[in-house]
């Protein structure tokens, strides 16, 4: 299984350079980051780009930065770095949970958060996590400049996003949050250890000084058409202290409400079982982190 012929290959060093290359290469061009999804697709000839613009030499697309308005994760940051960085604490711990369980070591050495978002495969982790954490994505193109897109508008369907073909994802911004009293977590069930998620759950919980829940977010991946938030969890938890019973109730509400699909990996019913059980555990973990427990 080999890629179809490729006519042009560019390895720009800057964002501007990458956008220039894109303009020069024209319509059948694709960006390539870690290649962990695109190379699969190219070898199966599901993707047949005429030109490739390799982002791996663009240093400014990589790394994390903390500012007053929150944390910026650049799209080329690899899972390996996300798994070990100390910059993602508090509200952003779910990113580390996900990054450290994606695929395997070699995949984590190469794969990037931006690539995962732009690919938006059903069985993936980062779109789900970023949805839970209210990320805003910055897309840049030569013609239209930059625009910010909230993650819920970005994720559209299987292998489909709001990104236009000529747009480069340049930033993933997470809103500022308090340092204490907030925690997030992510877990998935993939059949095999670290396998692609049949269901993945991300959750964030914020508590006040008295331990009452002031924010609760919950999102589910592994379901069609794309990762989805379930706000009913907030309804079940807000203003309450986090108890095991409350987490069970909230996760069950999510399982009941969210439509799931049947495929050869799991039935719609079993996906609901996973949402309920994983959901409860992830809520408990996010809560424990929020309360320093």
């Amino acid at each position: 299984m080999y890629p179809a012929p490729i006519e042009a290959y560019f390895a720009p060093r800057t964002i501007d350079g990458a956008l220039q290359c894109r303009a020069e290469a024209g319509d059948d061009a694709m960006f390539i980051a870690g290649g962990m999804s695109l190379m699969q697709a190219m070898k199966a000839r599901l993707a047949t780009p005429r030109a490739l613009i390799d982002l791996n030499e663009v240093e400014e697309l990589s790394g994390l930065a903390k500012g007053p308005r929150g944390v910026t994760v650049r799209p080329l940051t690899r899972y390996r770095e996300l798994a070990v960085t100390t910059a993602l604490h508090g509200a952003l711990q779910a990113i580390g949970d996900a990054a450290s369980t994606v695929g395997d070591r070699q995949v984590r050495n190469a794969g990037t958060i931006g690539g995962s978002l732009c690919w938006n495969y059903v069985a993936s982790c980062m779109p789900n996590v970023c949805l839970c954490l209210d990320a805003t994505l910055v897309l840049a193109s030569l013609e239209r400049g930059e625009r910010g897109v909230p993650i819920n508008e970005f994720l559209i369907g299987p292998l489909e996003t709001a990104r236009r073909d000529d747009e480069l994802l340049v930033e993933i911004n997470f809103p500022a949050s308090k340092v204490y009293g907030v925690g997030s977590a992510y877990r998935k069930y993939g059949g095999t250890v670290d396998g692609l998620p049949i269901v993945g759950i991300a959750a964030l919980i914020e508590v006040d000084e008295t331990g009452l829940c002031t924010d609760a977010r919950f999102s589910v991946g592994g379901i069609l058409p794309t990762a989805r938030r379930f706000d009913g969890v907030g309804d079940a938890l807000l203003g309450r202290s986090g108890t095991p019973a409350a987490f069970v109730e909230a996760a069950s509400a999510a399982a009941d409400a969210i439509e799931t699909q049947t495929d050869h990996l799991a039935s719609a019913h079993y996906r609901k079982v996973l949402i309920r059980t994983l959901g409860r555990d992830v809520l408990a973990e996010a809560h424990a982190r929020a309360t320093g427990g």
Binding site: G191, T192, V193, D194, G195, L196, H264
Partner: peptide, 15 residues
């Protein structure tokens, strides 16, 4: 439906 190792899964060391 199962002509690759994502769909035809083998046990890894961790399993």
């Amino acid at each position: 439906l199962t002509a690759d190792f994502e769909n035809y899964r083998l046990a890894s060391a961790a399993d």
